[in-house]
Write a protein that binds this DNA or RNA. Structure first.
Lengths: 198, 198, 198, 198
DNA sequence: CATGAATGAGTTTTCATTCAT
DNA sequence: TATGAATGAAAACTCATTCAT
């Protein structure tokens, strides 16, 4: 029926899982885990309620699949081809811009990830991915400190300040206090460098 | 019944309401609004489930009362006797320290306020208090910018960056990555001044 | 309102639990565990569906409470004041009659107990009561065999034959092939004695 | 595909139906009708869930087909070449042994038949077969009573006692209290004759 | 006033059945 | 013909709210 249907089953198959994940992402980001009823996800995904349980063992499994998928995606996008030998200023700029591009391309993802970071329903594997990203960032900071270009304070503190500031911009965008575009992120970047530089 | 009861009913009255608010605060902060059952709040407060409905019309009314109470408290604590004529650096320091003291004195409050900022169940009045605090901060920033001591960028951006950084420290404390004490806040303060200063 | 209401709360309290157990007994006996929906039990008991979960943690907990209650009752009724020193013939007669009276007084109980003996949802404690009754019966048989009045075969075999025959009569009554009264049981008693006597 | 396919389609056809019936038998015997999910039967049978509905209109139709098949089989096996002219003692022995052989050859069948005897989903035709076996047994008993070798009581009573005793042995085997072999059945046979003989 | 037992609407989850392939 | 993904109706269970005491 579809002329160039080269991978008919495969496409339809994966599509349904993806469509459920996409619907769940948006709803979980907006209403939280407990505030989102499974049938609502089903309706938004355009599938039957029972169908969700063919792809995910439970609502908890769904939220964890979502968490792992996007935390992994974020990790990959931030760390891929990272300029290991570049200077600290350049590295900072790369990470900041990559984060900004990520949140703009995937509007609900960061909200979702932040909101569900604490949930008791988030399992060990989900947290493991979280830690890998954290360790990557601390590694970059330590190296820059060794070079003497960052403030010689607890790397944890520097990381949390910059990350907090980044999330602040994101939230202001979401709440309409700043434009939803690269612009506020780029405007904030030099200030945030001042935050950490020696 | 109480012989020399100077404020008999009133005291008992208020106590019960406060005890409910305190229980709700902790539970809402830890488990979210939808994740917290009203009978659980009652149990933690040591009152009957029905009693909650003598003090609050509904679960939503409870969460809004809580939100307004603490957002108002925060507003008062930050703005009371504010050194209007002091320099920008001093004013920054005062606000930062007051915020830090507030979150350390009321461990669950800020978590609660941040978590419930978005909720669809948060009513107009709750948001109004929110705005007063926001406007106060923007005012302080504008004045400092006029004096030429802050970066001449969108005040909204500066506010959101500093506030984000502050929340970052708070979260790191909560998650055990930084010590739960004034120390990390004081350590962060100069860096955050660098973030905004010209 | 009730003139001699000496124990109003207590009576109402216990009543509800008992009323649920009574409704569940009949339905579980007729339709089995999986064939009986909790709301159906609620309707028959004249309570809300949620009420059942105030008294029993789960449907499984309900069926086990029922099982233990009645297996315990049966054990008590069969073994209470048992004529330990009487002859085997007399003891046989006593047990047989007590069983018959029990099933006639509690029409659904034995059906329920037999039907749910195998269920995977029957817990360890439930089976423990079962075993006590079994051991009692084997003890009586052993003693009678030692006296030489019963066939010198595996007591397990004798027990299972007589018990099976008893259940046969019960089933025939239930299915309308025999009268629902003491009569068929009394008619069967001498035959069943022949079954086991030397 | 199969080169020397003498009965190709038919064999495959029947095989699938039989394989479904065999899977259903075991599951229904172990978990009951309502406790057994159709997809589980399909999985055990090694067919697709939809396939079951090509052979049986519904789950009820499946259980009834199963019931009729095996009740008919039992009827045939018990009554085939029955020694009409033999003495009552011999006839009793034949029936008893045939039943014993049947339950040992078809371990789940009797359990299934007993368990589903009452079910509301068992239809009229299923019960009709049941009755033919019952009538056969009553006929044998009546004749033996006329000869004066059985107790002159309600044939229904004698039948139910012996049948109950037989089921008792079967259950004891299933539950591990007696060996799963002909032995306990043969040991029980003389006792059960005592149960009914004059 | 305070309570907590009771409830039914709503939640998560299962499953008999269908149907496109 | 055989399949198994899809479904929605119904199951078990939870919880915000009420109300008799």
């Amino acid at each position: 029926m579809a002329p160039p249907a080269l991978l008919p089953r495969a496409s339809t198959q994966g599509d349904k899982r993806e469509v459920i994940l996409a619907a769940a992402l948006e709803l979980f980001a907006e209403r939280g885990f407990h505030g989102t009823a499974v049938p609502l996800v089903a309706e938004k995904a355009g599938v039957g309620a029972g169908t969700i349980y063919r792809y995910f063992e439970s609502k908890e499994a769904l939220v964890n699949a979502l968490y792992q998928k996007w935390k992994g995606e974020l990790l990959a996008q931030v760390t891929a081809n990272f300029p290991q030998t570049a200077g600290a200023r350049e590295q900072f700029s790369v990470i900041w811009r990559r984060l900004a591009e990520f949140v703009l391309e995937n509007p609900h993802v960061y909200t979702f990830l932040e909101l569900h970071h604490h949930g008791s329903y988030v399992d060990a594997e989900s947290r493991a991915i979280e830690n890998r990203l954290h360790d990557f960032a601390v590694g970059v900071i330590r190296k820059a400190q060794a070079e003497g270009v960052l403030k010689p304070v607890d790397p944890e503190l520097l990381l949390t300040l910059v990350h907090g500031a980044f999330i602040g911009v994101l939230r202001a965008c979401r709440e309409g206090r700043l434009a939803v575009s690269l612009e506020p992120f780029l405007a904030a970047e030099p200030s945030c460098w001042d935050l950490v530089r020696r």
